[in-house]
Simulated scan of single mutants.
Amino acid sequence: MLVKTNKSAEWRTLLADSLTIFWSDWLDLRVRIAQIAASGLISPLIYILAFGLGLGSSLPKPAVGDNYLEFILPGMVALSSMTISFGGTTFSICGDRLFTKSFEELLLVPIHPLALHVGKMLAGIVRGLMTSGAVILVAILFTGKVWSFINPLFLLLLVLNCAVFSGLGVIVGLNVRSLESVGLYNNFVIIPMSFLGATFFDPTTLPMALRVIVYLLPLTYTAIGLRAAAYLPLSEFPWYSIPILLVVAIALSLLGARQFASQQD
């Protein structure tokens, strides 16, 4: 009984410490809500106008959604949440490490390394939700399907996607030595994933070799899951996407906690 009580107290302490770290970032985020929401909206809007309304008008009806515009809208939500969750988290940690030099103070705080990672990850999740919320509003205006984009299953996948890429952003932010290095990660990881992560196409139509590569990307499971949550009945929902994203988020959290434990700067 005493062991269970101690374990429960440890988890409560971990949660409280994580929220404390998150709150320090939230104090900055709350005064920039409009800026953050708009920062990741430009690219999805360009893709929606160019591909959804432009190219999409000449394409046949897709397997999911009434037209190609509807098909790519869930992918645009996934794309915006990935970009801002990763980029915002990475640049925030880089700024503290490389410019303000305030990161050393954070490392001296006597709390568990996992709480440090989770707190930073929560801030990244909020950043991603702010931007993807703006894209969801655009999707609702284009389609008129309110419940398709705000149902619990859709929102759960969105939060998991933000957790995955904000967790990745924490790890990258702890390891890079300059802002130029952040650009390399963005060019070689985020941008390719933006186009290969099933945001613009149905991965089941690809040749097997390419399909294997696409299904190695976590964004793929978010895109196909959001599309199914928005337009398909529950019987056709790819339930495997939820545990896959959850496992990736947990693995990144453990890796991030290990990184925090050994961080020197």
Rank of each mutant, 00 (worst) to 15 (best):
I125N: 02
I242V: 15
Y215A: 03
A63T: 13
I190R: 05
L45H: 03
G52E: 09
I150D: 06
L107Y: 12
L184C: 04
V214S: 12
I150H: 11
P207A: 05
L98D: 12
D66H: 01
N186C: 02
V109E: 00
A261W: 05
C162Q: 08
V164P: 07
G173N: 07
L73F: 09
D202S: 04
E10G: 00
F51K: 05
P113C: 05
L158C: 03
L41T: 14
F99N: 10
V164L: 06
V126D: 02
V3L: 14
S80V: 09
N161A: 07
T100P: 12
Q259C: 02
V3H: 15
L69H: 10
S58N: 09
L69E: 09
V118K: 06
T222R: 01
M193S: 11
I72S: 00
G124Y: 09
N186W: 12
G52A: 10
T205P: 00
G144T: 03
I93R: 09
V214T: 14
S18M: 09
H112L: 04
F188R: 03
P243G: 10
F200R: 07
E70N: 02
G75D: 03
S235E: 03
V64I: 13
L157T: 01
Y215K: 08
S92W: 05
L246P: 11
Q264A: 12
L69V: 08
F154T: 05
L45Q: 10
S102T: 14
A223D: 04
D28W: 14
T220G: 12
I42D: 11
M76H: 05
E104A: 07
G169A: 00
I72D: 02
F165P: 00
K101H: 14
G40T: 09
L179M: 13
V138Q: 06
T205L: 14
G124T: 06
H117F: 02
A257T: 00
L206M: 11
G167N: 08
I190P: 01
T20Q: 03
I250K: 04
A228N: 01
S24H: 13
S57L: 04
I171C: 15
N6P: 00
